[in-house]
Amino acid sequence: MIIQTRDIGKSFGSVLALREVSMSVEAGKVTCVLGDNGAGKSTLIKILAGVHQHDTGSFLVDGSEVRFGSPREALDRGIATVYQDLAMIPLMSVWRNFFLGSEPRKGLAFDVATARRVAREELQAMGIDIRDVDQPVGTLSGGERQSVAIARAVHFGARVLILDEPTSALGVKQAGVVLRYIARARDRGLGVVFITHNPHHAYPVGDRFLLLNRGTSLGEYGKGDITREELTGLMAGGAELEQLSHELDRE
């Protein structure tokens, strides 16, 4: 168990954004966080990533309680976050982006040859098929950019990878590509937190499912405890969906 939260909560002024949420992330497992807009997904991952601090409950990393003051502290503990609006520079090449902020050095110089080679190797190790690491990131598709960001986090020693809605802006095929990299990161022994509002993306790749609704947990399920249909039903708020289909039915 790398990360664990116990009845964690967070409020912003009078707004209770998150109440008594418990979850866990294991090495080599994918924990999916599902929920509609406003369910508290972002608040939860921002606590894990060190952007916010929790008010109640406890947050454990490697079994000991922590409270991150900044994203840097989370990163130092091996918790890397890939946000939806990726931190990448469109006009710069893939390898320059890959090492931005952590450039390998050879004497005074930026070791360009190593950077190019390592970037290419890391991408290949993740099974990411980039034609040319010299091409600007701006020419990559959304899925490819996500993949580069994931490979980058893995290379820089992440043990836990938090992915904030990596598939939400993508087409079906692209989303499939990203799901494959999530599986690849999992196979390399990383704990993955996969945030999504799409149960069809979560179910094939997830090992545990945390369902959030209006800031509270609807429960954390293992894959054996829940079917895809149940997951979808819970996500949509079962009864509500049924009523909606009645309303939309002709006659």
Binding site: L91, M92, F99, R105
Partner: peptide, 19 residues
Amino acid sequence: MRSRAGNWIFAVGGNEQAA
């Protein structure tokens, strides 16, 4: 082209927040 500073110059001009 060959220094860390160069990478940073392109980055702060390209997208300061991301950099």
